[in-house]
Structure formats: structure tokens, C-alpha cells
Simulated scan of single mutants.
Amino acid sequence: MLRNKKLTLLDPSSWDDKNDSYFLEVYKKRKKLSSVYALCFTEKNETYHHWSVFCSRENGVCVVFDRDKLIGHLNQQAGITCGPVNYRTIGDTGWPDLEIDDLPFLKRWAFRDESEFRAVYSGDAESEETKDISLPLSCIKKISVNPWVPDQLFSAIKETIKEIEGCRSLAIGKSQLINNKSWKRYGNIIA
């Protein structure tokens, strides 16, 4: 992403949640599209859940975007629609109020903790596994590296990122979610 300055949207058929990918497939068929790709973001701050579900123990990064800049850029891209995911229960009585264009942004209530936001590409482009769109690096606020990464490896990752053209001034840190000095200080002030 940093080297190529591109975001990669995936074919939803590759997703773990087959309920979710089914809705995008229905959307594709009903709109008579040859391709639909999506990229999912979270609108939440980092959580233990994010680190433990979306990456393995010693790899992965969290890219924090400037929401307004990113959405502004995405809205200028042909075929891209952005929006928050609407979480519904199976017994929800609001289903008749939904329209075809709502389908890419629907997900089961059980996933609500993800607070997902999506960029969805819909079009007649030749169907491939992925769809790349440009990414101005000015849309990135900071990069946070996995909290379990050993310090020496973090230093190497940070140095490597800083060497990429345009990334010298990016804020890069190691997540302190599981080992935060400021949080630990409170243990010393409790009577």
C-alpha cells in the first residue's frame, strides 16, 4: 500500500463471513454488474479484538486514516461508494425499508463491534481478484505496529517504512495496547 500508493479492494467471495459476501453477490446480480470489490475499515480505536482477530501474534499493522481526507478522495474515484455498515438482526422488522443499494452495507448484528465502514467498487470492469485505487499518502495519519512485535523487529519495520518514497514523515509507533506505561502509573497512585 505504501510503496505502490494504492488501496486494494477485494472480491467479497474471499471473505470468511459468507453471510456478508452473499449480500454483495445478490447486489452484484440485481444490479447486473460484472464486478464488485470492497475494502473494510473500522471506525473504532484499536482494541484487543482487532489485533487478535485480524492479524496473527507477531505481524500486522493498523493504518489510521484521516477520515475526511480519505472519504473525500474515495468519493472522487469512479465506481466507488462509501458508507458505514448497518448491523441488523435476523428478526429485525425493518427489512422491507431496505433497497438494493443498501445490500453492500448490511451485516449481521453479531459483528457490530467491528463498527465497519466500507469502500465498495461497483462496475463493469473485467472481473479479477482485486481492484486497486490510488491512495494519496496525505490520507494516512499514523501507522501502529502489532503490540507483540519484538522491539528489534519494530525498529526494522519502522526504518523500512521510512525508506519508502513519501513515507519519511509518517508517524509510526508500536501499539501500547497491552503494555502501556501511562496506564501502569495508575497502579502506583492507588492508595
Rank of each mutant, 00 (worst) to 15 (best):
T47M: 01
K107G: 13
E159I: 01
T89E: 11
P96L: 05
I133S: 06
L70K: 11
R88S: 10
C82Q: 08
C167G: 11
L98K: 14
N75M: 09
E46M: 01
I172N: 11
L24E: 15
V63G: 07
I140E: 13
L33F: 11
L177V: 07
R57M: 08
L39E: 03
K174H: 03
L74G: 01
V64H: 15
N19Y: 15
S155G: 06
K69Y: 11
C139N: 13
D113K: 08
C40S: 12
V85D: 09
L135M: 06
K18Y: 14
W95F: 10
K6I: 09
T89N: 06
G94Y: 06
E116P: 12
R118S: 05
I157H: 01
P96S: 10
R88W: 10
S13Q: 13
D97P: 01
K107D: 14
E159P: 01
E159Y: 05
N45L: 00
C55M: 07
L170D: 02
S169V: 06
D66N: 15
E25W: 06
L137M: 10
A110G: 13
K29V: 09
Y37D: 13
K162C: 12
L24I: 02
E163N: 14
I100P: 01
P12D: 11
S127W: 02
L103N: 11
S138M: 05
I189W: 13
W51S: 00
P147D: 15
R88L: 14
G123F: 10
F154K: 03
D151Q: 14
E159F: 09
H49M: 00
K131S: 00
E25C: 02
D92H: 07
A191D: 10
I190S: 03
K28F: 00
T160H: 08
I190R: 06
T81E: 14
D11E: 10
D16M: 11
I140L: 10
I190Y: 07
A125C: 04
T160E: 14
K6A: 13
F23H: 12
Q176Y: 01
Q176E: 07
A171K: 11
I189A: 03
T130R: 00
G79H: 14
Y48V: 04
P147H: 15
K181Q: 02
I143P: 15
L24Q: 14
K184L: 05
F41Q: 04
I80R: 04
N86K: 12
K28A: 01
C62G: 08
F117C: 02
I190M: 04
N75T: 15
N4F: 01
D17P: 08
P12W: 10
C62P: 04
P96R: 03
L7P: 13
N180Y: 00
T93W: 09
F41K: 03
S13M: 12
D92G: 02
Q76P: 00
E58V: 07
G83H: 11
A119P: 03
F117Q: 03
L9E: 11
L7R: 01
A38Q: 07
Y186V: 04
Y37C: 08
D124S: 13
L98A: 09
E126L: 07
A119S: 09
E163G: 13
T93N: 14
E25L: 06
R67V: 03
E25Y: 09
E25I: 02
V36D: 04
L10R: 11
K6N: 12
D16P: 05
W183T: 00
Y186C: 05
